[in-house]
Amino acid sequence: MKGIMFALTAGAGIALQGIANARIGQGIGTWQAASMTQLTGFVTSLAILLILGRGGWRRLGEVKPVYRAGGALAALIISANMAAIGAIGATVTVAVVLIAQLMFTFAVDLFGWFSVAGTRIGWTQIAGIGVMVAGILILSL
C-alpha cells in the first residue's frame, strides 16, 4: 500500500512538474524557466547528496562520457513538453509522451541498442502500444 502511495505521488509530481514548467515558461520565458527549475532541482539534490555523504563516486569514471552528459537532453525535453502542454493540454501531452517512451523502450530492446540487458518483449508490447494509440485517438475526439 505504501509502495502504491509512493508510485502515485511520483506520477502526480511528474504531471505537476509538467504544468508548472509550462506556467513558468509563459511567465518568464522557456529557457529562463528550464534553467531555473533545473538549477533549483540541482541545488536541492546536491544538498541531499552532501548531507547523506555516502560517497559512491569511485566508479563514475567508468561510465561513458555520453551517458554522463545525458542530463543535457532535459533542455530539449522540457522545452518540447512546455510547448506541447500549451498547444494540446496536459492529458494528451502526457499520453503521447508515455506512448513515445514505451515505443522507444521497445525499439531499444528489439534492436539491442545501448547494450541494454534485454527485457521481455513480444506481442503483448505491440498490442499495448496499439491500445494506447487507440486511447489517444479517443482522448482527442
Partner: peptide, 25 residues
C-alpha cells in the same frame, strides 16, 4: 494539434533515451 503531438512525441522519445543514460549512470 499536430505540432503539439509531434513535440510531445519527441519529448517522450528523449525521455526514453535519457532513462537509459540515467540507468547506465
Amino acid at each position: 494539434m499536430l505540432m503539439g503531438i509531434t513535440l510531445a512525441f519527441l519529448s517522450g522519445v528523449l525521455v526514453g533515451l535519457q532513462n537509459i543514460f540515467n540507468s547506465k549512470l
